[in-house]
Simulated scan of single mutants.
Amino acid sequence: MNKLIAFMALVFMVTACSDTAPEVKIQWTEVTELPQAISNNAVAAATVDGDQFLYTFMGLQRGKSFRDVSSYAASYNVSSEVWKQIPSVPDSVGRLASTAEYVNGYIYIFGGYTVAEDGSEKSTPEVWKFDPNTNAYEQVDDMLVSVDDAVSLVYNDRYIYLVSGWNDTNSVSNVQVYDTVDDAWETATPYPGPAVFGHSGGIVGNTMILSDGVELQQEGDERSFIMSAGSVKGVINPEDPTDITWNRIQQHPGAARYRMAAVGIESPAPMVVFMGGTDNPYNYNGIGYNSRPSSPLAGVFGYNINSGEWVELGEMPSPVMDLRGVAKTGDAYYLIGGMDAEQRVSNKVQKFTLQ
């Protein structure tokens, strides 16, 4: 059995942007490392026979070349602290920038992109329904628009939203809604402002908060990728899950970020918490579009939905970028893998709780 690798009880007091915001503490711990370092991987958590499990699907291995775009999948028993390799998606095609969500007993894995030997990339439309009880996959209806580097969010333990993202040659503003009960897709109110990829977001109740990402700018034949600073609030109409009221909100503290992790937190205050990522966007190997190495940012912050204010939550003990999501079990949240300050693919698993 793998043992607990390190315990770092780093507790940060929140610096609130409003006197009405509650005091929050965040505590970090490193738990059993992944057997294989992985980055830009889809992550989720599930309950199996009363036990809590973490999951990672696909992503980038340490070599960071097209050969290292992986179909690797593994599960982690939180109680026994053991990682185990599990079957990859049935087509065994390695993908980057996929996303995964746990809904009503199943994990749904969306899209991503493949990388060919000549460097060409292709956004994939497939959606896989994974049963954590049997480790079996079932292919369900494809996305309406193939996207990677999109934000996925779950509403009402039924609907999964894919917000903006990259489609082959351009970013798109589409908001796609997958109904897990009917195995059917619908189109929701489009994402406002520039279409982006590599942005981040979370949801509490029917309220989404999303931030940043990268947008494509094109002048003639010249294409460039730039950070797109901005934060957005989306409120889902409970009577119609395709109807979203979008509004721009105050920007979060610090620089705009790319591929940071985000998650909705209900307690001790309803907020969406963001962490990691970088202010120097890149494709997949950690070297920026500007040819300079990218480094992760350590700051953690959250948007308090009740007060409408951002709060600063200290710093990550081990900053990482290239994240696709946060896995939640009970009151604990996990960052699985990622890329560190030396652009190395990581096998660390970082756990945090808020009080």
Rank of each mutant, 00 (worst) to 15 (best):
E315K: 15
D149E: 14
Y106G: 05
F57P: 01
L216M: 15
Y137P: 01
Q27M: 14
V145T: 15
N41D: 12
V11N: 14
R344I: 09
E138W: 00
H252L: 03
Y102S: 13
V181S: 11
W246V: 02
Q36M: 11
E138C: 01
G111T: 13
G254Y: 08
S267W: 00
T124N: 08
A21E: 13
A116H: 07
P281Q: 00
S70C: 08
Q27F: 14
D221H: 10
R344Y: 12
G230I: 07
M58R: 11
S39E: 12
P253F: 04
S291E: 06
V147A: 08
I86H: 02
S346N: 11
A229Y: 04
G314Y: 10
S71P: 00
N77F: 02
F352T: 12
E81T: 04
V151C: 03
L354N: 07
L153H: 02
T47P: 01
V48L: 00
W310C: 01
N167S: 15
S291Y: 05
I26E: 08
V24W: 05
S267H: 09
T207H: 04
E81A: 11
A195W: 04
K122N: 09
D168Y: 11
T56Y: 02
D212M: 03
S294Y: 06
M13Q: 09
P190N: 15
A16T: 12
S70F: 07
A261R: 02
A9K: 13
T353P: 08
S228A: 15
L323R: 01
P253A: 06
T124S: 07
D279N: 15
Y137G: 01
D240V: 04
T56D: 04
T189W: 07
K25T: 10
S98C: 13
T207R: 10
V181E: 14
V140A: 09
A116R: 13
T169G: 05
V235W: 02
D279L: 01
P132H: 00
L162G: 01
E186G: 11
A261D: 03
Y155P: 12
D240A: 05
S173N: 14
R292M: 00
Y178T: 11
G193E: 12
A256C: 04
R259S: 09
F225C: 06
G288N: 05
C17I: 00
Y55A: 01
S294E: 08
E30G: 01
Q139N: 12
D148I: 02
V14H: 03
A6E: 14
Y102E: 12
A188L: 09
E117K: 13
Y159M: 06
V326I: 15
I287M: 03
S65D: 12
G201P: 07
V93W: 04
S231M: 10
A16S: 12
Y102W: 09
V154S: 13
V263D: 03
W128V: 06
T169W: 09
V196T: 15
R62C: 00
G119Q: 11
Q85C: 05
G213Y: 06
A188V: 10
I249L: 10
A269F: 09
S291H: 03
D240E: 10
V103N: 08
Q350T: 10
D51W: 01
D141Q: 15
D182G: 08
I305W: 05
P253M: 06
P317L: 05
N247G: 00
S346F: 07
V177T: 12
R67D: 14
A16E: 08
V31I: 15
K348M: 13
